[in-house]
């Protein structure tokens, strides 16, 4: 008996999943069975939305609802009784039942319905929250890079004005892309473009000690991915892999399609890192100076594509680092506008 009642209560939640207007009819039927009432009526603030069973002739539901909404408390007008639906502290509807039943029972069911409606509201909010989360996670442009870029442009202004102008244009392009507010996603081509401008600026800083190889299968260029996922990885390779290395450094960015997936790999031949440290960075720990960019990209990839599409890092001390992004070509909701 108890288990049966619990089951009914849970199923009532399923009925009301999409709110009172969408699920009112099955909910009213279930409530009528639960209360063993002759008839049940559910109303929101605009009036009745669902009814099950026949109300006694001559019952003035409109007046009853108005009265409930005015006082905000349960009312008994035999053969009808009514209880307000208070969702998250706000009056938002009314449950009316006809028949021989206790006021206490009706009040309990009304509170249950209100609870479920509250959950339904939270459920829809969750999707919005996920989107907002993504937006707050959106990669932040690093002050370190801003400073370095301006410094290197300043250094070139006298010695090589043409190069300085080119770099400034690169810098402007890069800023425009990172500050761009349209959407949370970009195409792989746009991501590469941003990475390219970033690397141009870094090359100037390294006095061209930096070799870059880009290998891209053209098929994946139009694929949409979360905004700024490639550039932070490249930035990490430059800052933590190559800056500390003596002599020439090499970065390769490659991308291919593998059936329904896109695989993008960023590899450097820098100083590498301790796998334990890499693991700590991805787990959300680790020293704050290291790999904030990587952890952020990893978190966003998992938020968008699910846990199995987080970053993979292959590294060891003095062996360079390879970071792998592996995501589906299509994901509902991921569109580069």
């Amino acid at each position: 008996m108890t288990i049966g009642a619990l089951r009914e209560a849970r199923l009532l939640g399923t009925d009301l999943r999409a709110g009172l207007r969408a699920g009112g009819a099955p909910a009213a039927r279930r409530i009528r069975r639960l209360l063993r009432a002759d008839a049940v009526l559910l109303a929101d603030l605009d009036g009745p939305v669902a009814r099950h069973g026949t109300l006694p002739a001559g019952s003035d539901t409109d007046a009853l609802l108005a009265e409930v909404y005015e006082h905000g408390t349960a009312l008994r007008r035999p053969p009808l009784c009514a209880a307000p639906l208070i969702v998250a502290g706000d009056l938002s509807g009314c449950l009316v039942a006809a028949g021989d039943l206790g006021e206490e029972d009706l009040g309990e069911v009304a509170r249950l319905v209100a609870e479920h409606l509250d959950h339904a509201g939270l459920r829809t909010a969750r999707v919005r929250i996920a989107a907002a989360d993504l937006r707050t996670l959106r990669a932040q442009i690093s002050p370190h890079f801003l400073h370095n870029a301006l410094a290197v442009i300043a250094a070139h202004i006298r010695s090589d004005p043409a190069r300085a102008r080119g770099l400034l244009t690169d810098f402007a392009d890069y800023l425009r892309y990172s500050f761009s507010t349209q959407g949370d996603y970009a195409t792989v081509a746009e991501e590469l473009q941003a990475t390219q401008t970033y690397l141009e600026l870094q090359r100037a800083r390294f006095d061209d000690r930096l070799d870059i190889t880009v290998r891209m299968a053209p098929e994946i260029l139009p694929v949409a991915v979360p905004f700024l996922v490639v550039q932070p990885i490249v930035e990490n390779a430059v800052r933590h892999g190559l800056e500390r290395k003596a002599g020439r450094g090499h970065i390769s960015v490659s991308g291919v399609g593998e059936g329904p997936f896109v695989v993008i790999e960023v590899e450097d031949d820098g100083v590498g890192m301790d796998p334990a440290l890499a693991r700590a960075v991805l787990a959300g720990g680790g020293p704050p100076a290291r790999g904030v960019g990587l952890a952020n990209v990893d978190q966003r990839l998992r938020a968008v594509y699910g846990p199995e599409h987080g970053l993979l890092i292959e590294t060891a001390p003095d062996s360079g680092t390879k970071v792998i992004i592996r995501v589906p070509r299509f994901m509902r909701g991921v569109v580069a506008e």
Binding site: D298, R302, G310, E314, T315, A316, S319, G320
Partner: peptide, 14 residues
């Protein structure tokens, strides 16, 4: 490259 063999790591969830 002269260092040790690379190890593949990921976040615990992944």
């Amino acid at each position: 490259m002269t260092g040790t063999r690379r190890v593949r790591v990921s976040s615990p969830q992944t």
